[in-house]
């Protein structure tokens, strides 16, 4: 039996009896929303300009490097060096994306709507952090993948592909380290203020203002101070960890690193871990306070 068509009934309010998803799904929804936000998806055209400009630049650089290599046979930069070379772009990307992720919510007062829902107060910052890490990893990893595809198809046989892959994997790991360190520092700074401009300025300042400290430390007469100088700034800290773990991939004839670690490689690694752990702990503490407001 079919009802006559073309009649609209106001069936009034319907109670919902279907499934209510658990914490993992809610976390996933917030995470995906965050990843989309960093690239301006589902947002106004204006919000898309900057992220896609950066994406365009890194992809173009990767394409150029691949082209030069296939035509001239010269390796302009290795996979791992790619992340180093793009560090300033990454910093600007974080300075735009992190405030977009957290400062905007703080400014518009939408947080009470999140924290009055079945979302533990730690899940909100963690989902946002994971979203930013993912975005940064995609930003640094996708061009490397492009370079890999270019390199693998111009090489001869499976052996060449395998060699390329062995070069790519450390490069991706290094990109992951960049992503984790920059995302945790950037998001912590952004979570302090609701004003996006202040947050962006603060993030750039953290990365920029610490560079002179590295400079000063590296010209002090003490060799120990010189070798530990890189710890003072996040970009040189990450480079230090990279140099310690994969020196031969980062230091080539064309690109000699100016950072001398001496025997302090493990100290750099520990400092990086401590920095990330500290930032995450502060971020969680920050949102525990915000949630109760």
């Amino acid at each position: 039996m079919s009802e006559p068509t073309g009649v609209i009934h106001d069936i009034g309010y319907q109670r919902y009896t279907g499934p209510r998803l658990g914490r993992r799904h809610v976390f996933g929804a917030l995470y995906l929303h965050g990843v989309r936000t960093t690239f301006g998806l589902g947002r106004s055209a204006k919000a898309k300009i900057f992220p896609w400009l950066v994406v365009g630049i890194v992809l173009m650089v990767a394409a150029a490097v691949t082209a030069i290599r296939s035509q001239i046979g010269e390796v302009v930069m290795t996979y791992a060096q790619f992340a180093d070379a793009m560090s300033w772009l990454v910093i600007f990307f974080v300075a735009v994306a992190a405030p977009e992720l957290v400062s905007r919510d703080m400014r518009s007062g939408v947080l009470p709507l999140y924290f009055s829902r079945p979302l533990p107060h730690a899940d909100y910052p963690l989902a946002k952090l994971l979203a930013l890490v993912t975005a940064l990893f995609l930003l640094l990893g996708a061009p490397q993948l492009l370079m890999f595809l270019g390199g693998a198809f111009t090489g001869d046989g499976m052996g060449a592909v395998w060699d390329e892959l062995l070069d790519l994997l450390p490069g991706l790991l290094y990109a992951g380290l960049w992503a984790v360190v920059f995302a945790s520092v950037g998001l912590l700074v952004a979570s302090m203020t609701g004003k996006r401009a202040f947050a962006a300025g603060g993030i750039v300042a953290v990365f920029l203002m610490t560079t002179p400290i590295v400079g000063i430390l590296s010209v002090l007469p003490s060799q120990t101070a010189n070798q530990l100088a890189g710890i003072a700034s996040p970009p040189t800290l990450v480079q230090g960890v990279g140099l310690w773990t994969m020196r031969d991939l980062l230091v080539t004839e064309a690109n000699t690193a100016d950072l001398d670690l001496g025997a302090f490689g493990p100290v750099y690694a520990l400092a990086a871990v401590a920095l990330v752990a500290g930032c995450v702990a502060l971020l969680l503490a920050r949102y525990k306070k915000v949630a109760a407001r």
Partner: peptide
């Protein structure tokens, strides 16, 4: 819609 998902509703 987004807040509905945060409350645990399927997409």
């Amino acid at each position: 819609t987004h807040l509905g998902r945060i409350s645990g509703l399927p997409r």
